[in-house]
Design a protein around this nucleic acid. Structure first.
Lengths: 195, 195
DNA sequence: AGCACATGTCAACAACTGTTGGCCTACACT
DNA sequence: AGTGTAGGCCAACAGTTGTTGACATGTGCT
């Protein structure tokens, strides 16, 4: 389906992508230079241009990410929050693409747009059926999804980008135990005032 | 105390700082150039160097910010969360220095360090006496303060930096109504499992 | 008035950026 | 064996960056 003919340069292309993800994740969009990425990949900077056109397209290719949200309708309703928290934290822990996108999103408009798209096309659709049970107003679904995003992104920001001390050393299960109920409330509480 | 003799260049210095804050808030650390800041301030780029030494010191001067947290011990215990949420949102809404620091913190180590310092020296001390009533373990206080930070920073990120749609148009009172109980739980719940 | 010093302007440097074109090599196909 | 083409490297361009030094102007003090 997605795969074309295998090219002789596939290894190089993959090396570039890997190096790009590392650099973008560590330095953000502007400080991650094509030269540094090429050096990490052990090739000439020209190759990056040949295979990915320009820096913007390279980032677009490197930051292509799938949240891989599970089907939450299969999860017991009162476990949805914790399940989501665990999934996101796991995702962030094992895929530096997420950190790359977050770091770059703070200063690069293209990266920010991509995050907005991810939110709209990947998170909102999954959240809608969950919210529907507590609140039939469909416009509320997007708001609740945004609240979930804010807590998840905030935690990722503190833990993986700012490296705020108590957050970095906190065991991941403890983070999940704290965030779970928060997400749960955002998704299934009947209104903002609900505790 | 803090004020020295008034200098003839005070107006220029202030203009530079204002322009710097705007640029850093809008573009982040690396994309905000000294030339652009100087142009906004209507002066020569050289003056920036003369008065602030270099770009890093300019940022340090421009991003000097006081959270101005109120004394939470005066607030009814069950209103602390909402009170905090309102204060932070208000602060962010009226002082672009906050956005400048957040944007820059994602890619600039100096800015990140400053955020960590703000957390340790401004937020933690205020949070400690509040937490103490629910949980006598003082090491827990920093963890709970970090959780508060994560939700506040995440909301600011979505609303002022990424401009995630449902979050930008949501009335500020609604945001506060949602975040308040979350912060309340982080501060006064007896443990992570508490709803 | 004369002098010291703060304020401001102009031109330029050196380093680095994304990006381009030319050239060489090695593989695939006939 | 010969040829087209993809893969790869080198040198270089044009623009921008932070930063520096030399030089002019004006203000305040004696």
């Amino acid at each position: 389906m997605t795969q074309g003919k295998p090219r002789r340069s596939d290894a190089t292309r993959a090396a570039i992508l890997t190096a790009a993800r590392e650099r973008f994740a560590a330095d953000g969009y502007e400080r991650a230079t094509i030269r540094a990425i090429a050096a990490d990949a052990g090739i000439d900077p020209t190759m990056v241009m040949r295979y990915y056109g320009n820096k913007e397209k390279l980032f677009a290719a490197a930051a292509e990410v799938d949240i891989r949200l599970p089907d939450l309708t299969e999860v017991p309703r009162d476990r949805v929050g914790t399940r989501l928290a665990r999934h996101f934290l796991d995702r962030w822990e094992h895929d530096e693409t997420m950190a790359a996108l977050l770091r770059a999103g703070a200063t690069n408009e293209g990266a920010a747009q991509r995050m907005r798209d991810m939110f709209a096309h990947q998170l909102v659709p999954v959240v809608v059926p969950i919210v529907a049970r507590a609140c039939p107003d469909p416009s509320q679904a997007a708001a609740r999804a945004a609240l979930v995003s804010s807590q998840v992104l905030g935690a990722a920001l503190c833990r993986y980008v700012l490296r705020l001390e108590p957050f970095v050393t906190m065991p991941i299960d403890e983070v999940i135990a704290w965030l779970g109920p928060t997400l749960q409330r955002y998704l299934t509480a009947t209104g903002p005032e609900a505790r």
